[in-house]
C-alpha cells in the first residue's frame, strides 16, 4: 500500500523537483520573469505530469524495459501537444509569451524522471498523486521565483493576470512601488540564478534547523563518561 502522505510531502518538500532534484531548471529559470508566466507554465507542467504519470502507470506491465523511454516520451509528447492546443485556444496571449517553453515541456527532466522513477513502478493512484504533488511542488517554486523576480524587476505582483484568468483579472495587479525604476538584473537570467540559489538556501536553512531540533529533542544526553576528542595528529 502506497504511503500517500509520504508521496505528498516528497513532492512538495523533501524531494521537490526544483529545489532538491534540480530538474527542469531550463524552463524554471527562463520563464519565471513574472507570476503569470510562472503560473502558466506551472499549470501546464502539472497537467502533463499528472497525465503522463497516469498513462505510464497504466502501461507499466505492458511495455518492455528496453523501449520504455521512447514510450514515455511519446506519452509525454502527446500530453504536451494537448496542453499546447488547449493553451492556444484558451490563453493565446500567454501561449505567445511562453513560446517555445511549452513544447519544451517534453524535454523537462522532471516529467520523464517521475515517469521512470515512480510511475512505472507504482499503481495508478499513487502515480497520479505523485504527478500532482510533484507538479504542485514545481509550480510553487515557479510562482515563488516568478513573484520574487517580478517584484524586484518591475516592482509589481500579479500583473497581466488577465492573460490566464480572463479580463476581470486585470485588476489583480499590485503595484508595490509606484515610481519603481525597474531592476533589469532580476528579469534577466542571472537574476533567476541568484533568486533560485536564495530559495534553495532558505530551504536548506529550514531543513538544517528542523534537523537540529529533532536531534536535540528526542535524544537525552548520553551520559557515561566524557568523550575525548582527538585534537592532535
Amino acid at each position: 500500500m502506497a504511503d500517500y502522505r509520504k508521496i505528498t510531502l516528497d513532492g512538495l518538500w523533501h524531494n521537490n523537483p526544483a529545489l532538491v532534484q534540480l530538474l527542469g531548471l531550463c524552463p524554471l529559470l527562463a520563464v519565471t520573469g513574472s507570476v503569470v508566466n510562472a503560473i502558466g507554465l506551472g499549470l501546464a507542467t502539472t497537467l502533463v505530469l499528472v497525465g503522463s504519470n497516469l498513462a505510464v502507470s497504466l502501461i507499466r506491465n505492458l511495455v518492455p524495459d528496453a523501449v520504455r523511454l521512447p514510450a514515455f516520451v511519446m506519452i509525454i509528447a502527446s500530453y504536451v501537444t494537448c496542453v499546447e492546443l488547449l493553451m492556444q485556444s484558451l490563453t493565446y496571449d500567454l501561449y505567445q509569451i511562453l513560446g517555445i517553453f511549452i513544447p519544451l515541456i517534453v524535454t523537462n527532466c522532471a516529467i520523464l524522471g517521475r515517469a521512470d522513477a515512480f510511475a512505472r513502478k507504482n499503481p495508478v493512484m499513487p502515480a497520479v498523486l505523485d504527478g500532482l504533488m510533484m507538479g504542485v511542488g514545481f509550480s510553487v517554486v515557479l510562482v515563488l521565483l516568478g513573484g520574487l523576480r517580478e517584484l524586484l524587476g518591475q516592482g509589481t505582483l500579479f500583473s497581466d493576470m488577465q492573460l490566464l484568468f480572463g479580463p476581470e483579472a486585470a485588476g489583480w495587479k499590485l503595484t508595490l512601488f509606484s515610481d519603481y525604476p525597474g531592476f533589469l538584473f532580476a528579469v534577466l537570467p542571472p537574476g533567476a540564478f541568484v533568486g533560485m540559489g536564495l530559495i534553495i538556501a532558505v530551504k536548506n536553512i529550514i531543513d538544517a534547523r528542523r534537523k537540529a531540533r529533532t536531534e536535540r529533542q528526542p535524544q537525552p544526553v548520553e551520559d557515561g563518561g566524557s568523550k575525548r576528542v582527538r585534537v592532535t595528529g
Binding site: P181, F183, L184, F185
Partner: peptide, 10 residues
Amino acid sequence: ALLLISFPVE
C-alpha cells in the same frame, strides 16, 4: 556590472 545592466539610464 550589475548596475550597468539593470539601470542603464542612471
